[in-house]
Nucleic acid binder design. Structure first.
Length: 157
DNA sequence: GCCAACGTTGGC
DNA sequence: GCCAACGTTGGC
C-alpha cells in the first residue's frame, strides 16, 4: 500500500468534480518521472491526497483512491486528442493512466502554508520550493499527519 | 500578471 | 553530450 499526492487545478478538475463523477481517469500526465510512478508504482487501493494547485488557497482538498492501476493512455494514440503524442507507439506506449475514485472531501482545504508550518511535513515534496512534479510519493507518517490536520473521517490504519 | 524553477528541445 | 532557448508549472 502506497500513499501519493496528485495535483490538479480545480478550474480544470476539482475534488467536487471527482465527487460528482465517483471516479475518473487521471489524464494529461506528460512528465516522465510522473509517468514512471503511474506505470510502475501506483497500485490498486493506494490512497491519494487530492491537491488543488493554482487555487486560492492551494492545498489538499480531499482523498481519493486508485481504482484502476496503470494502463496505456489511449489519448496518446489519437491524433484528434489534445493529448496525442506521435512518439507513443502501441507496441511501446509512452504514457499511462490510472483511474482514481472519490473517497472524501475535507471540510476545509489543508492549505500549503498550513502544510509548510506543520512539524513532520518538512520533507514533503509539495512543501519544497520548485516541487512541480504532479504525482508525488507521500510517506505513511506524512499521510497520517495530513489526515489528522483535516480531521478526516477515513480511519487512519 | 510576474517570474523562479525546472523539464524539454534542438543546434552544434 | 553540452547548453542556450524555450515552454510550462504554480506560488505569490
Amino acid at each position: 500500500m502506497n500513499f501519493w499526492l496528485f495535483k490538479s487545478e480545480p478550474s480544470v478538475y476539482s475534488i467536487d468534480d471527482l465527487k460528482r463523477d465517483k471516479s475518473t481517469p487521471w489524464e494529461g500526465v506528460r512528465n516522465y518521472q510522473a509517468r514512471n510512478f503511474l506505470r510502475d508504482t501506483v497500485k490498486n487501493g493506494d490512497l491519494v491526497l487530492f491537491y488543488h494547485s493554482n487555487a486560492e488557497p492551494p492545498g489538499v482538498a480531499g482523498i481519493a483512491r486508485i481504482v484502476k492501476e496503470g494502463y496505456f493512455d489511449p489519448h496518446a494514440f489519437d491524433p484528434k486528442s489534445k493529448y496525442f503524442d506521435e512518439k507513443s507507439k502501441k507496441d511501446n506506449p509512452a504514457w499511462y493512466l490510472v483511474d482514481v475514485g472519490f473517497v472524501e472531501k475535507f471540510d476545509q482545504v489543508i492549505s500549503l502554508p498550513m502544510l509548510k508550518g506543520t512539524k513532520g511535513l518538512e520533507e514533503m515534496m509539495v512543501t519544497k520550493r520548485g516541487a512541480r512534479l504532479s504525482i508525488q510519493p507521500v510517506t505513511k507518517a506524512e499521510w497520517d499527519i495530513v489526515l489528522k490536520l483535516a480531521g478526516a473521517k477515513l480511519a487512519v490504519k
